[in-house]
Computed example of a mutant assay.
Amino acid sequence: MARSIRCVIAFIISTILGVGVVQYLVYPTLLQYERFENVMSRFGYTKETLIVFVVLSCWFLYLQIEFRHFSRVYLYLFYSVYLFLLFVVLFTKAPEYHTFNGDLFDFLVWDRGTLIEAFLNVAYFIPLGGLYGLRANWREFILISLLTITGIETIQYVFYIGTFSVSDILLNFLGCLVGYSSCLLIRKFLTKPALK
């Protein structure tokens, strides 16, 4: 009975989190980009689809931790959708940019939009760090994540689809670090014997 109540509470919290994150952070930020606004206006349920994805991802993650068993199907489905959304956010938001920003801390300003975008640059990469946490040791994690993030920034610059930004590398790496650390904590929790 207690487990059922925890699962219901987790669903409620996942719903509040999903609605809040998409409604107040993700969606307003995406609407700042003309290409996203045009694409989202063609599909009437973009916001609702994003909310459902976040809610179900969080809730199913909780359920797997609660039952101490991770489903490969969940991981495959989650990362398929996540990587698609990450690709869209990283490579289609700008119509044409080709600039270099070497300021490591350009996000440290008292501007709500800039701070939200910095927060999202961290949050977008948490699942990627979690993926690396499934198999990589910490040295491999640092190398793989920095190469991946630097590669993404280079692709954006070379193909005129974004800005090569040193601060993005820092923020994305912090997101990967949070995801990697969280994955290690979850794996440690799952290997402990359950208390009865």
Results as ranks from 00 to 15, higher is better:
F36V: 06
E66W: 03
L108V: 10
I116N: 04
F36H: 14
L90K: 09
L128D: 02
L50F: 15
F125C: 07
I51G: 05
G44R: 06
R72V: 10
E96S: 15
S14K: 10
W59Q: 03
I12T: 08
F105Q: 01
L131T: 00
I126M: 08
E34V: 10
F125H: 08
R42Q: 15
A94M: 12
L83D: 00
N137G: 14
F60R: 08
F84M: 11
T29S: 13
V54L: 12
L83W: 10
V81S: 03
L61P: 00
I142N: 00
R42C: 11
G130I: 01
L56V: 10
V81M: 03
I13F: 14
Y76R: 11
L90M: 13
Q23Y: 07
E48N: 03
L31S: 07
C58W: 06
Q32R: 15
L108E: 07
A118H: 06
C58A: 15
V19Q: 12
N121V: 10
W110F: 15
F67I: 08
E66Q: 11
G129S: 04
S14I: 08
E48M: 09
L50S: 05
V22A: 02
G18W: 02
R35D: 06
E66L: 05
L75W: 09
F119Y: 09
L134C: 07
G113F: 09
F43L: 12
L143F: 11
P127F: 07
L120F: 11
R68L: 08
I51D: 03
N101S: 14
A136F: 11
R35Y: 13
D103N: 15
Y97K: 13
Y132W: 12
S41Y: 06
V21W: 10
R139D: 01
W110D: 13
I9L: 14
Y124G: 00
Q64F: 11
T15D: 00
F119N: 04
D103T: 11
F91S: 07
L120W: 10
F78S: 11
T114Q: 11
A136G: 00
L17T: 12
A10H: 03
E37G: 07
P95G: 06
F53V: 05
A10C: 04
L85C: 05
M40D: 10
F84Y: 14
T49M: 15
L134M: 14
I16D: 00
F100G: 02
T15H: 07
V89F: 12
E66C: 09
D106C: 09
L61F: 15
V109K: 12
L63M: 13
F105P: 00
T29R: 09
G20Q: 02
P95V: 12
R135P: 00
I116Q: 08
T15E: 04
G102I: 05
I116H: 03
V122T: 09
L86K: 02
Y24Q: 06
R139K: 14
Y124S: 09
F91E: 03
L77R: 13
Y132N: 01
F53Q: 02
N38W: 08
V88L: 14
G133H: 04
D106I: 09
Y27I: 03
V89C: 11
G18P: 04
S57K: 05
F43Y: 15
A118Y: 08
